[in-house]
Write a protein that binds this DNA or RNA. Structure first.
Lengths: 351, 351
DNA sequence: CTGAAAGCGCTTACAG
DNA sequence: CTGAAAGCGCTTACAG
């Protein structure tokens, strides 16, 4: 394409030229050492005399040398890329986590390669293959549907950090969030406000987060001596339409309820809209509490009470755990626990 | 790390083994041809006899060979990676575009490498460097703040597809959206509903989209014979808080207005919240129209009237334009034009 | 039409 | 402590 530079041209005595990026070899030439030495200094792989080190560092600075990650990947097996299996690249919930990963990795020279698994084990397996063929140094799996076993097997070949479950295996770190406690807190909040008939819009039952949140709901009811009423539990699928439909079903059932706890904010917002359509006001007629604390929930009408999930921190922690794992350190920081954010969609039961 | 496979082990007579991915060389051996031939078949680089072609394809299928993109990148300069400079990995607007890019690229074997420019020219330049050092085959730039000149220069080295502006240069394709017409349509909608005092919450003035939408607003007013009142135009910065604050300023100015056109949905939602706080109802007291049609706008209370921007299609088109550009074809499909989506936040002026 | 050979830009045993 | 050499897995002139 570019006729001016022949990629096959032999080496010149003086390697420096405007055309083409500066190579490690050019640095070696300029510093009067061998390429091996430059490589070692770059990677901190061996002790090198201060003198040569200085010379090489100067040459690097002067030439503006940036190692080629592609060549590095081929030769050494390290690409400074971390694969990230997210469920949808445009997920409002995982967005913050992706940003956290990016923020953590960027200053360390790592790049994230984001791929979407679409909540589908087969697609996620394909993602793993794609990422491995790209020679990523490690893979961060944001929840997803891969089995524990699949993940463990995978971790034998490539370091894994997985969120949304607790799992012990070599080469693998898991980072879980306490969804049970979150569900409990949300329900307790409503109970504290005097509500006795609390509906629950549940998430996808084969999603672990969903079952944990339901368990939390039940635990809070039980602790308060309130009967669990299966008719007040409506299945949903974690999206807005689920919330809307759930309200319709709830209303049609003619069961009395003064509050709704939705297993995520998207369903909560859908529920609020459903109530609005039936001319029921939030929180005057019905209190609503969500789960996740999406960025947009702060600006819902009314601003949504919810359980804050530290998605951004989750991303940062996952990324830093990965980087440490690559360095052979399996320690991980604790993820902040669930926290109730009481805003305007929930209030004390009148009368 | 893995003591079982020595990376430096010599080649065995029979290349096939369970350990390590299958290489092109193994395919060549199995098919009884040279590696060059396999490579040529893979890349469609030269005419090869049907016989050998068949043998190679069988061997590929049998061994489950997948070319190593890293090696490919080093040797041939093609990595099957497309860099994507987005402004924030968790942007609610660009999310759909990223998904469109992913959906278009995935079946073609390309991967997207997403990096965030944060609406900052210097950061975006760094992104370009990062992407080039990773040897991406091309770069898709989603709007951003790079100058036309910077982009043109860049396009001399690497194919570029840029959105959000119109620019002609070799090695570069631009995909623009008609923000002027969008702004005009939104305003016209409000005028059609009988509104005469229409406030405008503008976007960041050094953002081209913002100035175009403002121009559209003015054009519609003018066409309707309505005076432009600078006091009714409040600067914003494209986020929710801007909208909230703008409403405060508008109300404090004591200027009469019956409708608000916000230059994006996030500000529109903020404005609705601001009105809600002052006990003004939407649309009974004030009509509100946004711009973008974010996924969440469908579920705002009330569902937001807005100008639909085809973000997903934008992503798909940008990606397919890039792939064709890489094949030497500069043709591009047209992006759908702006479309008004009238929902429940706007209504006919009473009285 | 097809192979042998050189090369992409690094890393890493191996041997001082 | 440091170099020469081989190798990572491909591609592509070059020469039949």
């Amino acid at each position: 394409m570019n006729p001016k530079s022949s990629p096959r041209s032999g080496k010149r005595a003086v390697a420096k030229r405007g055309d083409g990026p500066v190579t490690l070899e050019a640095v070696a030439l300029a510093a009067g050492v061998s390429p091996s030495t430059v490589s070692r200094i770059l990677n901190g792989t061996a002790v090198v005399s201060e003198l040569k080190k200085k010379a090489v560092e100067d040459a690097i600075a002067e030439l503006g040398f940036v190692p080629n990650p592609v060549a590095r990947g081929l030769a050494g097996g390290r690409t400074l890329s971390i694969g990230v299996i997210t469920q949808a690249i445009d997920s409002p919930f995982y967005g913050a986590a992706l940003r956290g990963i990016e923020d953590e990795l960027d200053p360390l020279g790592y790049r994230a390669l984001f791929v979407s698994g679409h909540w589908n084990a087969a697609a996620e397996s394909r993602c793993v293959e794609v990422l491995r063929s790209r020679r990523v140094d490690g893979i961060i799996v944001l929840t997803g549907r891969l089995t524990d076993q699949a993940l463990k097997t995978c971790a034998k070949n490539v370091p894994i950090v997985v969120t949304g479950r607790s799992l012990k295996a070599s080469g693998l770190i898991s980072l879980n969030f306490d969804n049970f406690e979150g569900g409990r807190l949300a329900t307790q909040h409503l109970i504290d406000l005097g509500h006795r008939s609390i509906a629950f819009i549940s998430g996808d039952p084969d999603h672990p987060d969903a079952v944990e949140r339901l368990r939390g709901y039940r635990a809070a009811l039980e602790a308060a001596g309130l009967a669990y009423d299966a008719k007040l539990v409506i299945p949903g699928e974690f999206h807005e339409v689920s919330g809307l439909l759930a309200v319709d079903r709830l209303l049609e059932s003619r069961r009395r309820f003064t509050a709704i706890f939705a297993a995520n904010d998207q369903m909560a917002v859908g529920a609020v809209l459903g109530l609005h359509r039936r001319s029921l006001r939030v929180p005057e007629d019905v209190s609503v509490v969500g789960f996740d604390d999406l960025p947009s929930s702060l600006f819902s009408i009314p601003p949504l009470s919810t359980i804050h999930q530290p998605a951004y921190e989750l991303g940062r922690l996952a990324a830093s755990a990965m980087v440490r794992l690559l360095a052979g350190d399996k320690s991980t920081e604790e993820l902040p626990g669930p926290r109730l954010i009481a805003r305007e969609s929930s209030r004390r039961l009148a009368g």
